[in-house]
Design a protein around this nucleic acid. Sequence first.
DNA 1: ACTTACCGTAGGTCATGACTTACGAAAATA
DNA 2: TATTTTCGTAAGTCATGACCTACGGTAAGT
Lengths: 102, 102
Amino acid sequence: MTYENMFSALGDSTRRQVFEAVADRPRAVGDLAADLPVSRPAVSQHLKVLSDAGLVVCRAEGTRRIYAARPEGLAELRTWLERYWSDALESFAAEVNKGRDA
Amino acid sequence: MTYENMFSALGDSTRRQVFEAVADRPRAVGDLAADLPVSRPAVSQHLKVLSDAGLVVCRAEGTRRIYAARPEGLAELRTWLERYWSDALESFAAEVNKGRDA
DNA sequence: ACTTACCGTAGGTCATGACTTACGAAAATA
DNA sequence: TATTTTCGTAAGTCATGACCTACGGTAAGT
């Protein structure tokens, strides 16, 4: 939901792998854990963090829970990025000029 | 440098404030600390993390160190974002169709 | 040379979080 | 109903990291 949650969620390597996997295609928890070096409960916890951050959504299919990436989540990240990217460009250009003076 | 470093760097609230401040305009360490609720050494440590992540650069001006945002850093983040955003769009569309079947 | 301003790093404390095993709940199956 | 499958959560361990104070080092001013 917040930038805080999103960035810190994607800041963990294992958790980013989980996200990238479900972004590739929706998967169940057990399937995700099978392709990762951590236990299934660990994957569950990572998915909860990603879900709280608004980066994934969940759908029940029998006893299985199918997780999928949530595009709106990345869209929010993109909003932040676009803003500070233009800021960074301007301030960096000014910095280069300052450097020329000195 | 790596996505790992970038996301985890921006995942901390205080550190993201530091980055946003220098993105607005280049600043010295003491000036940054004056506007933040943490000590100056803490700001120094955050700047080191941001620097290792390739998100900021530094320039000496007398005893002062002027830090500025590094646009190429955000550009890398954008590359990641664009890729997984399109992935997420496709997988999410497929997910919606699956949901319709069930 | 001495003092002042500004900064990075070392060392230590404390909270956060990533991971594990154990357990309980819900749905399909027989 | 009993069993199996799949999953989330609780409880505990251990490493990471965010923060502080103290210290040392460099550049400018007197």
